[in-house]
Design a protein around this nucleic acid. Structure first.
Length: 654
RNA sequence: GCCAUUGUAGCUCAGUUGGCCAGAGCGGCUGAUUUGUAAUCAGCGGGUCGGGGGUUCGAAUCCCUCCAAUGGCUCCA
């Protein structure tokens, strides 16, 4: 009998029979290890525990502790879901069911429409099937065999997938009990390992993500090895709900949607407006230091301008329809760039004028499809932190890096610790359709952007086929304090539209050249950025952003006069201060101030009046004792001007 | 736009095998209380039950339709 050598992660070696499986090895090391084994890595490839080892190999057993195992668990739970569904609804046809980062889903073509109420029944069936502890078996099939098999089962979606694979490829399927699914694997060895899972929601999803295909029904779920992990995951979902910007926006009176105004058209309330104004102030100062010039442009514009820019042909469906006046079509502007191009063109430019950086907080209107609207995150009227930088090819890289560094500056201020840039590139198929037909310019610009990102040492990934029609772009994803991902800033390079607008500058040799244009919006739109900040801070804004920074709480009416003096003094020092004059007890006033997440409460009574002090109570810190008004003003003003982030708290308040 | 769910007072929510004038808490207003670190007491207002249409002796409740919001899909200059 021939033997092979397997090398384990601790570099120990074992002689084993040919055909031994990682499962056998795990068992030989120890029963405990075997029980926790999920899959294995043979020479770096993830495989089933039951895979035969046929040559000398490096073998690593993956247990419930290895991150790779979680994906396998999720994927196997998706199979269990499909199996349960087939048992309950034999006519259902299954499509695809992959793992996400901590969830999974399965797309299924159902004979009836599913609602959330159907989930408990399916989940119960899953539990029952898991307990039966079916062995999960891998099968290798030729394309013909696979087609026969799934045609017998009438699984048309699976057949569609199989027929698109190459005919000489070995196709694998996994079975558990009566159920079989086309799948690359690997999988957990038996369904008994699936214990802690929960179905979360239902949704519609197009087959293959294509709008023109049939809509299938998607079921989302999650699965974990440990009961605690499952509980924790569900707890985090609850926590995220508490920080939902729509909920907090209402509670803290930041913004309001009114049906009579229209969907996706937010009204900024006074409290929310303060936050927006602070952001705008920050941007103006930052851009001023970076050499930007501010401009203002109208909301209405003739259609000609958008025909020339190409926006009308690319985005007509998501623009508000034209208003006809004096024989011309007028549109409300969906973006600011054409106007800025016109400002560039308003006077002759020399290379000495470049880079020219034009900035505007312009309000734009886009007809987002009704189903896309989502609180402040996706709206139809939006104010953008917009600017366009016109520069020469030589200046491009420095300008681009400077823009990205501005992102970093903002991230620091807002305490954003994790980000990733997505370099969105064109693809060949889209040339002349989705993208302007300039294959060489595309490649040249893309590599310039890539070099800039590398030189600036920014964290980025590349995604083909997601560029803007006029050039490559960077989308910046950031993660909020509770780890949810948002796409905020965007930064696009435009090598096409300046030419269409005949934008030129005179170079040092006296010749005309077309400038490059960088579109950039580091703070995204006001709406989206504030929405993000609400979740990020859980409504507990740092002092400089807090709509009400200080509230004065007199012990009783007797001290109103002194309280008013304190109020006036803070007000005169440009601190946003309120005065609670209600005939309530102190406890009630404090409670209401806490619920409104006001960072600083000043309690004034007899003691304070007699000593010209105020008693400070800060949110999350409680009673901090008495301090002179003068000293307090200095400290608060300093904290505000430094834009201190304040403490961030993982747990939201009651 | 597509699939599903939801829509009752300013807010959070009860009320559905169809049946007296549609309820609560908070908020609001009025009055009393003059209070020391997360809810003082009492009284009074407040609702086209998302809009429209239908079934019925009778509709918040059943049906149709439109609108809006929510979970996703698709899209995002």
């Amino acid at each position: 009998m021939s033997k092979i050598t397997v090398t384990l992660p601790d570099n120990s070696q074992r002689k084993v029979e040919i055909g031994t499986t990682p499962g056998d090895i795990a068992l030989s090391i120890g029963e405990g290890l075997f029980r926790n084994s999920i899959a294995a890595k043979i020479n770096g490839n993830i495989v089933d525990l039951k895979k035969s080892i046929t040559e000398d190999s490096i073998v690593q057993i993956l247990t419930t502790r290895d991150p790779e195992s979680h994906e396998i668990l999720l994927h196997s739970t998706a199979h269990l879901l499909a199996m349960a569904v087939k048992e309950l609804y034999p006519e259902a046809k299954i499509a695809i069911g992959p793992a996400l980062s901590d969830r999974f889903y399965y797309d299924i073509d159902f004979p009836k429409f599913l609602s959330e109420e159907d989930l408990p029944e399916i989940e119960a069936k899953m539990k029952e099937l898991a307990k039966s502890n079916f062995n999960v078996e891998r099968q290798e099939l030729t394309q013909k065999e696979a087609l026969d098999k799934f045609s017998e089962l009438d699984e048309s979606y699976k057949m569609e997938i199989i027929s698109e694979l190459s005919s000489d490829e070995i196709i694998t399927a996994y079975s558990q009990g009566e159920f079989i699914d086309l799948c690359r694997g690997p999988h957990i060895p038996s369904t008994g390992k699936l214990k802690y899972f929960k179905l979360l929601s239902t949704a519609g999803a197009y087959w293959r993500g294509d709008e023109s295909n049939k809509m299938l029904q998607r079921i989302y779920g999650t699965a974990w090895f440990d009961k605690k992990d499952l509980k924790n995951f569900l707890f985090q979902i609850e926590e995220a709900k508490k920080r939902d910007h729509r909920k907090l926006g209402k509670q803290l009176k930041l913004f309001h949607f009114d049906e009579e105004v229209g969907p996706g058209l937010p009204l900024w309330l006074p409290n929310g407006t303060i936050i927006v104004d602070e952001l705008e102030e920050l941007a103006k100062k930052t851009e001023h230091k970076a050499g930007y010039k501010r401009v203002r442009t109208p909301h209405l514009t003739k259609g000609e301008l958008y025909e020339r820019s190409g926006h009308l042909s690319h985005y007509k469906d998501s623009m508000y329809p034209a208003m006809e006046m004096d024989g011309f079509d007028y549109y409300v502007k969906p973006m600011n760039c054409p106007h800025h191009h016109k400002i560039y063109a308003a006077e002759p430019r020399s290379y000495r004028d470049l880079p020219l950086r034009l900035a505007e907080y312009g309000t734009c209107y886009r007809y987002e499809k009704s189903g896309q609207l989502f609180g402040l995150m996706r709206v139809r009227s939006m104010q953008m932190n917009d600017a366009h930088i016109y520069c020469t090819e030589e200046q491009f890289k420095d300008e681009f890096i400077a823009v990205c560094n501005m992102y970093m500056y903002y991230f620091e201020i807002f305490g954003i610790e994790k980000y990733q840039m997505r370099l969105s590139l064109h693809n060949k198929e889209g040339l002349g359709k989705k993208y302007v037909n300039e294959p060489e310019l595309w490649l040249k610009t893309e590599s310039a952007v890539r070099e800039a990102l590398i030189q600036g040492k920014f964290n980025f990934v590349e995604v083909p086929g997601e560029a803007a029609f006029y050039g490559p772009k960077i989308d910046v994803q950031v993660w909020s304090a509770i780890g949810r991902e948002f796409t905020l800033a965007t930064n696009q390079v435009d090598f096409a539209v300046p030419g269409k607008f005949d934008l030129t500058f005179t170079n040092s040799k006296g010749e005309d050249e077309i400038p490059l244009c960088i579109h950039r919006a580091p703070l995204s739109t006001h709406e989206r950025f504030v929405g993000f900040l609400i979740e990020h801070f859980g409504g507990d804004f740092p002092l400089w952003l807090a709509p009400v920074q200080v509230i004065i709480i007199p012990i009783s009416e007797k001290y109103f006069e002194y309280a008013q003096r304190v109020y006036n003094s803070l007000y005169d020092n440009e601190i946003r201060v309120d005065f609670d004059r209600r005939a309530e007890k102190v406890g009630a006033k404090i409670r209401d101030a806490e619920l409104m997440k006001i960072p600083v409460m000043l309690i004034v009574g007899e003691k304070e009046q007699n000593s010209d002090t105020v008693s400070v109570r800060r949110k999350h810190q409680g009673d901090l004792g008495a301090i002179s008004l003068e000293q307090l003003t200095i400290e608060l003003s300093e904290e505000i001007s430094n834009k201190d982030k304040g403490k961030r708290y993982d747990q939201s308040e009651r």
